[in-house]
Design a protein around this nucleic acid. Structure first.
Lengths: 222, 222
DNA sequence: GGATAATGATAGTATTACTATTATATTTGT
DNA sequence: ACAAATATAATAGTAATACTATCATTATCC
């Protein structure tokens, strides 16, 4: 993908001070990605992050309410980036089957290179989405956070791809469930391939997560 | 399901003292289920649990190393119970298609009644599996815990159902991935139906999670 | 009835997840 | 260039969490 000047817009309710507005803010975000990967979300603290970036705990608290909100910020960034790729790469392609293939590629394939659009390492962010993002949603605060619109980007992605499915087969009954279970399942399968390889069927050389879901989706809707 | 005298065997490495061996132990397990549901796993502490059961923190620590291990114990119990149901209900059924349907029913349908075999409320335990069980597996300790065999029951379930699939269609390439993604996807979709209903396609009266996955699996393997 | 084991009561520690205060830089407007 | 505003650093403090340790008190078991 070529280098572009684009901005990923994140809901201002997710931060106290926009981390994009200062060098320190960008450092908080970029270094948190390394640290969460290294320590896991449970082991990650603002104190450790402040030490890593040579700042203080209280300064980080001026940007983010707490570490949960920071993780939510990162996941929103990720899904906004995925949505951008989705729109960009399916643009001007008339065949809905072709568009669906591209979409499945985007949501199920591993991120292998960091495009360095931003101060954000996309490869490591993807790894956080795989290993830590369920912790954002599985809390007692989901409904409150959902009302605030923090999950709308994710829902938009599901809706966009569902629309392609309905275009291909208007009679298919479960487009949303098919896509949300593909998105989340693909992340889950990547985690499994890292930790429970016996549950992964990868005989052939191809990326089995991608081919499994492509096969699954096209068989389901045809 | 009829009342039976059966024991669910849990790896002794999961506890310091077997909670099944005393009334207090059973109380710890049974009441933890209510409290985790009420507070969420993050809000749940041994201190609060000890207060609820009229005991002390240190006593609970004599049974379980920490709250993570207790949750792991609960999930192992749940999957052992599911495996038991799987074996029992598919027994003596010759048609693999029929057995697959039964298996899909067991892994995707909601638990609506508490059979009271035990001191464990299965309806609430299922809710914990839906809302909290990802937290057991998505930690930095997965590999270590996997080596200790804490996830073998889950893997056995996947293998059992995969075997049925191979019996139906020996050429299907992704039996393990299909089943693990169905098991986890069904839990995920139940959570979504509780918190993100717009992503659930339930036009007809039937249980859409069950019918979605039945449709999906049979189309994938045929 | 004495030994053994289980539980209760209490105390203590390091860490976490913050909040508050003040001092020192840095930026900005004029 | 200089005052005013703002951002950050340094430090301290608090309540809660996740434990560990000790010792007294009850049950139970041979």
């Amino acid at each position: 993908m070529e280098r572009l000047f684009l901005n990923i817009a994140i809901s201002p309710e997710l931060y106290l001070k926009d981390p994009e507005s200062s060098e320190l803010g960008k450092k908080i975000v970029s270094q948190s990605i390394y640290l969460i990967n290294e320590l896991g979300f449970e082991g990650f603290t603002f104190k450790k992050l402040s030490k890593k970036i040579g700042s203080t705990e209280s300064t980080i608290y001026r940007y983010f309410e707490n570490k949960h909100t920071l993780l939510l910020y990162l996941t929103c960034w990720y899904w906004s980036w995925v949505e951008y790729k989705l729109v960009f790469e399916t643009h001007n392609i008339s065949s809905p089957e072709e568009r669906l293939k591209i979409a499945l590629n985007i949501i199920t394939m591993p991120i292998t290179e960091d495009n360095s659009f931003f101060h954000i390492n996309e490869v490591l962010l993807h790894q956080i989405i795989i290993s830590e993002s369920t912790k954002v949603i599985y809390t007692k605060e989901v409904d409150k956070e959902n009302e605030k619109g923090f999950y709308t980007v994710y829902k938009q992605i599901v809706n966009r791809i569902s629309d392609i499915i309905i275009e291909i087969n208007p009679d298919y009954n479960y487009p949303h469930m098919l896509i949300s279970s593909t998105i989340d399942g693909a992340l889950h399968q990547r985690y499994f391939s890292q930790h429970f390889p016996s549950l992964i069927d990868d005989k052939n050389g191809k990326d089995c997560v991608f081919s499994f879901y492509t096969d699954l989706v096209f068989n389901a809707i045809k």
